[in-house]
Design a protein around this nucleic acid. Sequence first.
DNA 1: AGCACA
Length: 290
Amino acid sequence: MEKVIGSVNYHFFSTPSHVPDECYTAYDPFFLHQPDYGGINTLFVSGLPDDVKAREIHNLFRRRPGFDSCQLKYTGRGNQVVAFATFVNHQSALAALHSLNGVQFDPQTGSVLHIEMARSNSRRKRKPGSGAYVVIDNRNKAVGDAQESSGDDSGESEADEAPGDEGDLKIPKGEAVDNPETAVPTENAEKTIDDVSQDTVDGVSRCSTLFIANLGPNCTDDELKQVLSPYSGFKAVKVRARGGMPVAFADFEGIEQATQVMDALQGSWLGSSDRGGMHIEYARSKMRKS
DNA sequence: AGCACA
């Protein structure tokens, strides 16, 4: 990941100016009462519309670097739905948090995502071959069962707790809890477009051409071609120097192939990289042919 | 935060 050479961060233990020095003892109450999020790699997501689908949560997080798995949870409190997204480490969880917190999730209802570090990690480990997302349904706790789906049936229940003390109850009266079968990630199968050259998922417009930024000053077409050509569907790559730092465009047969490469290579370093790994997005328009 | 080629 990041490498820091020959420099030590001496500011680490420095005192925030608004707090008197004498507060900083080994047993400092400030630190003692502050949750330590350092080991947390799970995000807690609230602000979701109550008709959210696990698949939507999955689509929201799946392309974030370091994503592992996620789960949607019907809390059983009214129609409240929350989600947990687990990443390979704290860094990638934080990065996803920062990039998605506060974004409009549903323009229709105006619901805005509120994302924080979870209080504890999801202990559910993703088994190979199992789905990357799961649903936990506590809505009919009276009947006494939680449900999950997506082929994972490691009978574990979820580990996470919401961070804040969720004071907000939106308990609709006469809530008419519908069938628990909604626990299954229902593919509403009305939208199966995927390998056209452009479509949009969760508000992001996908494209079978990728835009690659954060390249080192010496990056070349050849270097990128080395890295990209093994992937299926790869067609072409062009580096543009454009005065400043180079950027590149990589074209693929279809959106799915472009997406796979984005997933695989997001954040990775090239030999020529100097200021961090590649930043890959869908291009705004498809590469012209020739 | 940075998106060209035709």
